[in-house]
Amino acid sequence: MPEDHTHPSRRSVRRPPTTRVTALLLGLAAIPGYAHTGHGTSSWFEGLVHPFGLDHMLAMIAVGTWSVFALPPQRAWWGPAAFMLALIIGAITGWSVGVPGWLEHAVALSVVVFGLMLMAAQRRWPVPLGMGLIAAGAALHGLAHGAETPESGFAGYAAGFLLTTLALHMSGVTAGLSLRRWAAARARWLLAAAGGATGLAGLVLMGRLA
């Protein structure tokens, strides 16, 4: 995995919850200004680029594509929304209390799970099951994001990675809509191939951690 999500110094840091919450609320209030020079630009940029690690990128694109095929058309946004909500909760947790040593393996496993979901995207999925799997995987990715929070601050960093996450989800949704419109007859095989490649990538990432 490209990022070292479980650096010992990150796991050992513990900050008082009250201080954390206060800092977070103050930081979130200032998010609109972070994109401007002199106001946390470095942390915002670090947040923008962090999700481009292979594990994060594959997971987010897979969720967007899966949502197009597995959820009712008017609810296709539920998958990305559930992912982003769980992602930020996980990131706050990782930033506040640190992360477990097995996190990298769990993140890689989530990529395998999302690949399997993509392979079976055209089957009838119980919505709670799909949302639960997405939220669980997203929380793991959020923990990894939170553990890598730069010293320059969480709020700008979070704004950056949420923006990139949204863009990656939309890429997956766009790919799914294009596939359904222009290659509907071959969608099952193309989804199986994409899901298989995603799952295989997850297994390779796990193997590199062994």
Rank of each mutant, 00 (worst) to 15 (best):
T93W: 11
A158E: 05
T18M: 11
G27D: 02
R75Y: 05
A135G: 07
A120C: 05
L166E: 04
S9H: 15
P128L: 07
A70H: 07
L163V: 14
A108G: 04
A82I: 02
V111M: 00
W95G: 12
V97A: 12
G160R: 03
R14P: 11
H5F: 14
L129D: 00
A197V: 06
W182G: 13
P126D: 14
G195D: 03
G64T: 10
E148M: 15
V13N: 13
V127K: 01
V13S: 14
G195Q: 07
S42N: 14
A70L: 10
T198R: 00
P32R: 14
T165G: 09
M131W: 05
P2A: 14
W66L: 14
L168P: 02
T6P: 02
S9C: 10
L109W: 10
L205S: 07
R180S: 15
P16A: 06
V173R: 10
H7K: 15
R75T: 08
G64D: 06
G79C: 04
L179G: 07
G115F: 03
S96C: 13
P126I: 13
G64V: 10
M117S: 08
T19V: 13
M57H: 13
L116R: 02
G172C: 11
F45V: 15
F83M: 02
G146W: 08
L28H: 13
T165L: 05
R188P: 04
G142T: 00
G27Y: 03
H169I: 01
Q74W: 12
M60L: 14
H5T: 10
R15W: 08
V97Y: 10
G101V: 15
A62T: 06
G132W: 00
L26H: 15
F69L: 07
F83H: 03
A158G: 02
S96T: 07
A187Y: 06
G172I: 05
H36C: 09
G196F: 01
H141W: 03
A147M: 09
A147Y: 11
